[in-house]
Design a protein around this nucleic acid. Sequence first.
DNA 1: ATACTTACTTTCCTTTAGGTAACTACTAAC
DNA 2: GTTAGTAGTTACCTAAAGGAAAGTAAGTAT
Lengths: 112, 112
Amino acid sequence: MENNSECINALLPVGDALDVISGKWKLLILISISSGNHRFTDIERSIPKISAKVLSKELKELEAHTLIKRTVYDQSPVLIKYTITPYTETLYPIIEELRLWGLNHRKVITGK
Amino acid sequence: MENNSECINALLPVGDALDVISGKWKLLILISISSGNHRFTDIERSIPKISAKVLSKELKELEAHTLIKRTVYDQSPVLIKYTITPYTETLYPIIEELRLWGLNHRKVITGK
DNA sequence: ATACTTACTTTCCTTTAGGTAACTACTAAC
DNA sequence: GTTAGTAGTTACCTAAAGGAAAGTAAGTAT
């Protein structure tokens, strides 16, 4: 990233990506579902501090972006499963880089 | 990411990373500075839709996290330069993955 | 009939983010 | 002395995000 054409080359796509996944919760929800939490209550319990209202709203947005799939199983009580899609997996490199950076950052701020 | 221990292993550090860099503007500002925009007005002009107020606030937060350095040159008119730090460079892999994902995402939503 | 469970939704309220526009302090140029 | 540039700040207001708690619908268990 040395010159201005690189600036515009990065600003636009990074902005596009941030429009979809920025915010506190979306990636955490995808991590939870990817790790095996498929039901609303499971996901809610796995992510500290998230509320049902926020989870509900974020799940809808993720579904709209085809980053998760919502399936209703007609049992009783009704069973609903959220699963990842092939598109979710395209985010794994981003999640992994964030995980590595976060691990190092914690070392940095706690003074190693 | 298959099981619950991987869930907690990823949720915490990714959450730490998001605490520092999430939001619409911070990564875009770092891209702009990395690309050679070092002055307030240059950065402001390089990022569509950002306002002086928001830029000012975000620059302060980035400086507090040592992700940029603010230097005052005592000339006239006064010259202030924002520069990246070695710590900024540790974010490049994240930015690059976001750039690649954003490029592909635009292809996906515009129907290739 | 009552209570419980799942998967949310609704209401109310507070906080945070963001936009617009005007304003400031300093200096230089005309 | 008026205009212009740099680097912001301030005030005012709206919008979006988020928290807490209660409520809802549909079925199951007792």
